[in-house]
């Protein structure tokens, strides 16, 4: 699934990017978007705006970008 569909308070793992520009990819990699990296969905699209907690940082991401970030829910 992509990040847009992730639910609030869910723990997810980053899988990969789809169709992202090189610069943006690099930026997200630098911010810690590395395959297998765990994060927590703080607020989801369903509830308003997408924010995640990744390596101790709260990141706000727009819906368009979030749709290009593939994640897997952690059980």
């Amino acid at each position: 699934m992509n990040l847009v569909n992730a639910k609030q308070n869910a723990f997810i793992k980053f899988v990969s990017f789809t169709n992202l520009m090189k610069d943006y990819r690099q930026k997200l990699i630098d911010l810690g978007f590395i395959p297998g990296e765990k994060m927590k969905v703080l607020t989801s699209k369903e509830d308003g705006f997408i924010t995640v907690l990744l390596r101790g940082t709260r990141l706000a991401i727009d819906n368009e970008s979030a749709s290009k970030i593939l994640v897997k829910e952690e059980k």
Binding site: Y24, L31, T51, R58, L59, A60, D62, E64, S65
Partner: peptide, 11 residues
């Protein structure tokens, strides 16, 4: 289209 948005939210 407009470009992406990613930003750190300070506490």
């Amino acid at each position: 289209e407009s470009s992406y948005f990613v930003m750190e939210l300070p506490p």
